[in-house]
Simulated assay, not measured.
Amino acid sequence: MAISLMKMNLKTLPGYFMGLYLVIVSSFIFLCIPSTVQAEYLYVIPTAEIALRSGKGTEYRVVAVIVNGSRVQLLKEDGDWSMIRTSDNKEGWMPKRYLSASPPLKDVVASLQSERDRLKKQITDLRKQLNDVSEARNQHEQDLKACILDRDKFRKSYDSLKEDAANVLNFKNALSETAGELRELKHKYNIAEQENEHLRNNSRIKWFLAGGGLLLAGWIIGLITTRGRKRRPTLL
């Protein structure tokens, strides 16, 4: 600080002391003003009606009369007095000793009764929900039993269809084998028919040749016989 003062110019020295003076005065004013508290709500304790005054003292005029148990907003405190704001936005001072953070007994009782009613209603609703859940559970159990029965029926039907499918497959295989055998028999029949036709053709040819041979033999015999008859007179 001394070094700074030595470096200062004489023209700036009065301004420096003026700034220091303002800082000291501001600090003094800040320390002397009443303490301001964060806005909070208090209750007037059960007693006679309390006068709300325009200043911190009984000599100030009465702004309003506060009924005990009233809920007020604390604005600030100064010694034994508190500045408050009522529910109808009236502001004033009242003795600090008549304020409490705890609500009056009647409000507590009313709050407990309201909470009791709320809990009773909640219990009633929960019982109703429990009954609904129980009914739904019973219905679900019945549906589950029905589903199990249907599942067993479907399983039996599936097993039966599976067995039928296996039988159909076996029958199809047997039918395929029979069709193969039938084709083979038909092929053999066609071959036999061709052979029979060939044999019939050969038989016809043989009979034709035999008939032709007999006819030729008869013709030759007839020819020989005719010649023999013609030669006999000549020999006589």
Score class of each variant (00 low, 15 high):
residue 52 L to E: 01
residue 1 M to K: 12
residue 57 G to K: 02
residue 23 V to P: 00
residue 236 L to P: 05
residue 189 Y to Q: 09
residue 13 L to S: 07
residue 149 L to K: 13
residue 39 A to W: 03
residue 132 D to V: 03
residue 96 K to A: 07
residue 189 Y to N: 06
residue 88 D to S: 00
residue 3 I to W: 05
residue 230 K to V: 08
residue 108 V to H: 11
residue 180 G to T: 07
residue 45 I to D: 09
residue 22 L to M: 05
residue 168 V to Y: 07
residue 166 A to V: 12
residue 85 R to S: 01
residue 29 I to L: 06
residue 28 F to T: 05
residue 216 L to T: 14
residue 157 S to Q: 11
residue 233 P to Q: 08
residue 233 P to R: 06
residue 68 N to H: 06
residue 105 L to Q: 12
residue 65 V to L: 07
residue 192 A to Q: 01
residue 14 P to N: 01
residue 10 L to K: 12
residue 229 R to D: 07
residue 60 Y to M: 05
residue 33 I to C: 04
residue 81 W to R: 00
residue 217 A to V: 14
residue 34 P to Q: 02
residue 163 E to L: 07
residue 200 R to E: 09
residue 5 L to H: 04
residue 69 G to Y: 00
residue 183 R to A: 15
residue 94 M to S: 00
residue 103 P to M: 03
residue 89 N to M: 04
residue 122 Q to H: 10
residue 54 S to A: 13
residue 52 L to T: 00
residue 221 I to M: 09
residue 25 V to T: 08
residue 59 E to M: 11
residue 102 S to L: 04
residue 213 G to W: 08
residue 19 G to I: 06
residue 121 K to F: 08
residue 94 M to Q: 01
residue 134 S to T: 10
residue 55 G to F: 01
residue 60 Y to C: 12
residue 64 A to Y: 01
residue 160 S to Q: 09
residue 36 T to R: 09
residue 83 M to C: 06
residue 6 M to E: 15
residue 37 V to Q: 07
residue 60 Y to W: 11
residue 49 E to D: 13
residue 219 W to Y: 05
residue 127 R to H: 11
residue 188 K to R: 08
residue 194 Q to Y: 06
residue 186 K to A: 08
residue 43 Y to K: 02
residue 145 K to A: 12
residue 233 P to E: 10
residue 84 I to H: 07
residue 226 T to V: 08
residue 222 G to I: 11
residue 138 N to F: 12
residue 102 S to A: 10
residue 151 R to F: 15
residue 80 D to E: 15
residue 211 G to K: 04
residue 146 A to Q: 13
residue 183 R to P: 04
residue 76 K to V: 05
residue 48 A to V: 14
residue 150 D to Y: 15
residue 141 E to P: 11
residue 177 E to G: 08
residue 41 Y to P: 00
residue 68 N to S: 12
residue 35 S to E: 10
residue 33 I to M: 07
residue 134 S to C: 06
residue 116 R to P: 00
residue 85 R to D: 00
residue 7 K to C: 09
residue 29 I to R: 00
residue 227 R to E: 10
residue 103 P to W: 01
residue 150 D to W: 14
residue 151 R to G: 14
residue 51 A to W: 03
residue 13 L to D: 07
residue 184 E to P: 00
residue 25 V to Y: 09
residue 195 E to K: 04
residue 169 L to P: 00
residue 167 N to R: 09
residue 40 E to L: 13
residue 130 L to C: 08
residue 62 V to H: 04
residue 189 Y to M: 02
residue 60 Y to D: 08
residue 146 A to D: 14
residue 22 L to A: 06
residue 2 A to P: 09
residue 201 N to S: 15
residue 117 D to A: 10
residue 214 L to Y: 13
residue 218 G to S: 13
residue 80 D to T: 08
residue 162 K to I: 05
residue 187 H to N: 13
residue 5 L to C: 02
residue 107 D to R: 05
residue 190 N to P: 00
residue 119 L to R: 05
residue 137 R to I: 04
residue 180 G to N: 03
residue 186 K to G: 10
